[in-house]
């Protein structure tokens, strides 16, 4: 059919390539090419969406501190390290289970609250409904030091960072499809690192 042929051949035929769009974002294009992409973006919802998703991807996965200067060794900034301990893991009046006492989180038990100085985090482990053999860790930042905000969480096993997550504007973070095992969580911001005591899932 004529219409399908036109669509198949003309669909997005004027869009810049995905690399051009990426180089536009990274400001690597020539002035002429930059203007052309800018013009195109004003009329193309698909490219606008792709550019937004690129911005989000690069922002959410930004390279950690200090990766830059090629000539001089980079000094790690001084980081304050805190250890967050279990404050409460059960409702008032309810006894802690044996699992909680030995640092193991029961998926059915509800959130455990960890704290260090002004920081408090509620951590809940549940079965991952999308993946029955795995667990899901849901975290909520209950309190923090406004002078030293934190925004990143790493899930660590045997000293190796397996996954990282952003703390969103409401203080939430999630790790899904986690194998049962022994893990620690490391929560960081500029100049601050909070280690949660290791937990068994």
């Amino acid at each position: 059919m004529l219409e399908q042929k036109l669509l198949a051949q003309l669909y997005r035929h004027q869009c810049p390539s995905s690399e051009q769009l990426g180089e536009f974002y990274l400001e690597l294009l020539s002035e002429t090419a930059t203007v052309a992409v800018q013009d195109h973006l004003t009329a193309c919802p698909h490219c606008q969406q792709e550019l937004q998703s690129l911005k989000r991807f690069i922002t959410e996965n930004r390279l950690p501190y200090g990766l830059g200067a090629p000539a001089e060794p980079v000094k790690a900034p001084s980081v304050r390290v805190l250890i967050a301990e279990l404050i409460s893991g059960f409702l008032p009046g309810q006894a802690a289970s044996a699992m909680t006492v030995r640092g193991q989180i029961d998926p059915n038990e509800g959130p455990q609250v960890y704290g260090a100085e002004m920081y408090q985090f509620a951590i809940e482990v549940s079965e991952d409904l999308n993946s029955p053999l795995h667990r899901m860790i849901t975290g909520l930042m209950l309190a923090s030091d406004p002078e030293m905000p934190v925004d990143q969480v790493q899930l660590i096993e045997n000293g190796v960072s397996l996954h990282d997550a952003e703390i969103d504007e409401f203080g939430n973070f999630v790790f899904s499809q986690v194998n049962p095992g022994l893990y620690s969580l490391q929560i960081t911001g500029v100049g601050i690192q909070i280690n949660l005591l290791p937990i068994y899932l």
């Binding site: 997005r12 995905s18 769009l21 998703s53």
Partner: peptide, 25 residues
């Protein structure tokens, strides 16, 4: 145009997104 390792890795990161965009297109 790439003065340091960070800019090269950012480009590599962009290529990841670009490849997935190509698949999506």
């Amino acid at each position: 145009s790439f003065a340091d390792l960070a800019s090269l890795l950012r480009y590599l990161q962009m290529c990841v997104h670009s490849e997935l965009v190509d698949i999506g297109r």
